[in-house]
Design a binder for these strands. Sequence first.
DNA 1: TATTAATATTCTCTTTACGGAATATTCCTT
DNA 2: AAGGAATATTCCGTAAAGAGAATATTAATA
Lengths: 108, 108
Amino acid sequence: MERIFSALAESNRIRIVQLLKEKPLTVGEVAENLQLRQPQASKHLKVLHDAGIVEVIPQANRRFYRLRPEPFKELDVWFDSFRSIWEGRLDRLDDYLHDLQAEESNED
Amino acid sequence: MERIFSALAESNRIRIVQLLKEKPLTVGEVAENLQLRQPQASKHLKVLHDAGIVEVIPQANRRFYRLRPEPFKELDVWFDSFRSIWEGRLDRLDDYLHDLQAEESNED
DNA sequence: TATTAATATTCTCTTTACGGAATATTCCTT
DNA sequence: AAGGAATATTCCGTAAAGAGAATATTAATA
């Protein structure tokens, strides 16, 4: 989980991921689309690859990068466990604080 | 989006978020639960706060930290745009490559 | 096999992030 | 007002990340 977040903790890499959402692209295409120099594109793609976010499909001279579904599935599962937070907050802080005060007055 | 990912790109902060999923906690409680020193807990909570992931509820001497739903909603929306990738891949690379070759042979 | 296109890697420099320790701040309580 | 508990901030040292430029590698092709 940390590895995935770390890989996405950079604006260029977020842009790459969004770009690859459309279709697989070569390094050169990524670089051109995002106005990056080729070595930077390669480096960012390497980070994404190490994190398992993209995979490589060598095709002749070029290397196509494509999004892998697994990390997204993983994030989806992780996220699911937070759904209750924004779909009707369960933790009702005021109630919680009220309970807390009750506890404290019991300690006297 | 980058700000959210950056805030979560650290294992202790992921643990904090998971912990706060249960209920709001004070700095001290977070520190104790995760075996962190108080200053580190404060610092990590500050990063999460700056990213809008948590909010503070001052209560007397203490400060309760609570997850905010907004960033999760935001991530959920962002994520939705990737659903097609793992729910029946649409980009079918082999077809894509096939089309590509077709294009190239047209260039002759 | 020499050349070339496409991509990857290395090196250097600068910036940022983290932990630890010490200290400052805030706010309640007496 | 003084003391104390809870929390925040600062300072320091170190490690990691990022960009740029140069170079190395790979694979197709003449």
